[in-house]
Amino acid sequence: MTTTTGDVPFRILPRITDRNAHFWQGGRDDELRFQRCRQCGYYLHPPAVICPKCWSKDIGVEAVSGRAEVLAFSINYQPWMPGPEVPFVLAIVHPVEQDDLRLTTNIVNCAPDDVRIGMAVQVIFEPHVEDEVWIPLFEPAP
C-alpha cells in the first residue's frame, strides 16, 4: 500500500477542477497521473488545454510509474504555516518518463540530511479522503 500512515498533517489543499482532478485524485487508485498528448506522446504538467510540442488538443490522461529523480531540494526549517513538522524537505523531482516533466513535492520517510540531488525516489500518497485529495509525496526508492 503506497499511502502514508499515521496522522495526516494539515495542508492547504488545491481547488479541484475538471482539468486537475486526475493529478490530485489519482492517489485514490494509487496512481500518479499526468495529461499526455495522444498525438505525440508528450506529458503535460501543470495541466494544459493544448500540447505545446505539436499544438494538438487531443490530450488524455495516463498513469506513470511513480519513479522519479530529485533535481533540487531544500531542507525547510521555518514553520511558515500549520503543516508537516519542521524540518521537512521540499523538492523538485522529475518523473523518469520524460526529462522535462517536473513537479514540486516533499521528500518523506527519510532523514532530511539524507536527501541528495540525483537520488531515486518513488511516489507515495498522503490521503485527505474527506476532501477527496491525495497529495503525491516521494520517498527514497528501494
Binding site: R11, I12, L13, P14, R15, N20, P46, L71, A72, F73, S74, N76, Q78, W80, M81, G83, P84, F88, L90, A91, I92, L103, T104, T105, N106, I117, V133, I135
Partner: peptide
C-alpha cells in the same frame, strides 16, 4: 476552507508558501 489556485496550487499543498523555500532549492542546485 481556503483552497490553493493559480501557480500556488503547485506549491502551497507542499507547505511552501514563500519564495524563500523555492529560491533555496535553486541555490542548492
Amino acid at each position: 476552507g481556503f483552497r490553493a489556485t493559480g501557480f500556488m496550487e503547485w506549491l502551497l499543498p507542499f507547505s511552501a508558501p514563500s519564495a524563500a523555500v523555492w529560491i533555496a532549492m535553486f541555490a542548492n542546485r
